Simulated scan of single mutants.
Amino acid sequence: MSTDHATPTTAGLTESIGRGSLALAVATVQLLVFAGFVLVDRPTLYVPVALASAAGLGYASGRGWFGMATATLGSVLLLALALPLGLFVARQKPDLLADTVTDPAVHQMLYLTVYAPLVAAVGALLFGVPLAYLLARGFPGQSVVAALVDLPLVVPHSVAGILILFGFGRRGIFPGFSVLGTMLGMILALTFVAAPFAVNAARDAFEAVDERLEYAARSHGASRAQTFWRVSLPLAGRGIATGGVLAWARGVSEFGAVAVVAYTVDFFYPPAGGTVPGTHAPVYIYKQYNQAGLDASGSVAFILLVLSACIFLLVRWLGFGKLGGAS
Rank of each mutant, 00 (worst) to 15 (best):
T3I: 02
H5G: 14
T7V: 03
P8N: 12
T9P: 04
T9R: 11
G12I: 07
L13M: 13
S16F: 02
S21C: 11
V26H: 06
V47C: 00
L51Y: 02
S53E: 10
A55P: 01
A55E: 00
Y59A: 01
Y59N: 00
R63I: 00
G64H: 05
F66N: 00
L79Y: 01
L85P: 06
F88K: 11
A90Y: 03
P104R: 02
A105I: 03
V106F: 00
H107A: 09
L110E: 03
V114H: 06
P117N: 09
L118S: 15
V119P: 08
G123A: 07
A124N: 04
L125S: 11
A147F: 11
L148G: 15
D150N: 15
D150I: 13
L151P: 09
V154R: 03
H157N: 12
S158I: 15
V159G: 00
I164T: 07
L165W: 04
R170I: 13
R171Y: 09
F174R: 09
L180S: 14
L180A: 15
L184A: 15
G185T: 15
L190N: 04
A195S: 08
A202L: 04
A202M: 03
R203V: 11
A208S: 02
V209E: 07
V209L: 04
V209P: 03
L213G: 03
R218H: 09
S219A: 15
A222R: 13
Q226K: 12
R230Y: 06
V231R: 05
L233C: 11
L235P: 05
G239Y: 03
A241D: 06
A249N: 10
G251D: 08
E254H: 11
F255Y: 10
F255I: 01
G256I: 00
V260W: 00
A262N: 02
A272F: 13
G274Q: 13
D295Y: 08
S297H: 10
A301G: 15
I303C: 12
L307V: 11
S308C: 12
F312R: 04
L313E: 09
R316G: 01
G319E: 08
L323R: 11
L323N: 06
